[in-house]
Design a protein around this nucleic acid. Structure first.
Lengths: 260, 260
DNA sequence: TAACCGCAAGTTATCTGATGTCTTTCGAAG
DNA sequence: CTTCGAAAGACATCAGATAACTTGCGGTTA
């Protein structure tokens, strides 16, 4: 059991044992080091791990706190990771997306208000009006996201957002078949909206399932432009805060892979 | 943008840009520090974050590698976090579990072989034979897990395992109504198995959905014994590797919570 | 009184260098 | 050819010093 593991499980146990509830503050780092019997560096690595998992929340100058511990935030951690999956992995996720999207849409059909129906129709009009691929993707995401919100489960909505954000990076509308794809997609959205306004869960389920399946089909046909995962570049340019470390050439060592 | 963020996004971008593919090795820490312009400590915290998210894999004495990047491993990160959700959050997850478990079971009905059907029947017999709550929970998990495996989607199976592991901690069979719950649960398992052996996806879907809904209902009735999340204590006793840190009393500072 | 400002204390963030520990490799001995 | 041991490479951990940020308190001002 490494020092970081000790700290990790120790911190985790402080929460699971009920000693610290959601939102409460941890003791300062120095105290935690003493209690857990690890150095400050190891403790901080453990804190970073739990922070990456959205279990705790460290605020500079203030302290370290237990996160809110609601499912949608926990699920949100996947947003940073599914973007790195290669295409093969993404397609396996589509089965989940199809089932969940269909369920969310049918739930929305049972709960939608007239006001919400009108908003969806407006969104639909804007979507059919645009011919810009980028904007179409934005509106598409907004359309599905709105439906998931109507369905009433934040966790489900967040999970679907994660799946969609990954698909969106492929810019499916900017392919040679883009026009056809957009027309078919618009028709699918129209079917979904009709089912929602009719408050027909079964029809909504089918329409959403077919819409997702159609999208998956196109994604299988149009392989991504670059091999591996696409680079959506949320990351910043590394500011030059470097000090002095010993230099060695490194670009060539990226392809050696010891037997495992 | 903090130093750790710089390192985190830098490492992440090395993968997303395609420079390093799944399984490949990162340059040594010193080289990464120079390239990213951060100190070793900050780099290591970033590595820990990606490691917690199962995106990279650091092996003592060997080096740091890009993980396999398959969906089921990414989804597996949730296992460490859903255990910390309070009951309210768990119940919100049950909607997802119901939908996904039903889907997996219906998929299994379409794919199950006779051999697999016989194995499920054996499992069912063992489950009905036992009266030990702990063993019943184990077999219950194995039963559903087997079905998810038959369904053929590792990602879905892993996700369902995560949800179930959390529910299992409540030891629902050890409540006053344990006998009734077990009997009803056994009947539900029998229905599911019958639908599977009949290779009837629709019947399997309904049986699984009802089974999960029933479980959820009991969980709502029987509040957990302790407030907050139960402690399932996978964690070890912290070995006394402590050095010397300054002492301050700390137990009292756990309930002060500044405005946020 | 109420709003504002600045200072001081507390806390996390970062960097650095030294040392421990594990893995892998390679050559020599059997 | 096999086995064993030494050495190099790499991550793991620790300790201390310094920087940066947040918060709250008290004084100032309108």
């Amino acid at each position: 059991m490494s020092a970081v593991d000790v700290a990790f499980h120790g911190l985790r146990q402080m929460i699971s044992s009920g000693r610290l509830a959601a939102g409460q503050k941890f003791p300062p780092e120095a105290d935690l080091c003493e209690e857990l019997g690890v150095s400050r560096g190891s403790l901080r690595e453990a804190v970073r791990m739990l922070s990456a998992l959205r279990v705790i929340d460290s605020r500079h100058g203030s302290g370290t706190y237990v996160a809110r511990l609601v499912p949608e935030e926990i699920v949100g951690t996947l947003a940073l990771t599914v973007d790195l999956l290669p295409l093969a992995g993404l397609l396996e996720i589509y089965e989940l997306r199809r089932v969940l999207e269909a369920h969310a849409t049918s739930q929305a059909a049972a709960k939608i208000t007239e006001e919400q129906g009108r908003e969806l129709l407006q969104l639909l009009d804007r979507m059919e009006a645009t011919s810009d691929g980028h904007q179409a993707s934005e509106l598409d995401a907004l359309f599905h996201s709105s439906i998931a919100a109507i369905a009433g489960s934040p966790t489900l909505a967040t999970l679907l957002d994660v799946f969609r954000s990954r698909s969106r990076s492929y810019q499916i509308f900017d392919t040679p078949d883009g026009k056809l794809i957009k027309a078919t997609s618009d028709a699918g959205h129209r079917s979904i909206t009709n089912a929602l306004i009719a408050r027909d869960p079964a029809a909504a389920y089918s329409a959403a399932a077919q819409h997702v399946a159609q999208t998956e089909h196109w994604l299988r046909l149009h392989q991504p432009p670059v091999s591996g995962a696409p680079d959506r570049s949320v990351a910043p340019p590394a500011p030059s805060r470097g000090r002095s470390y010993r230099r060695r050439q490194l670009a060539g060592s990226a392809d050696d892979q010891p037997h495992r």
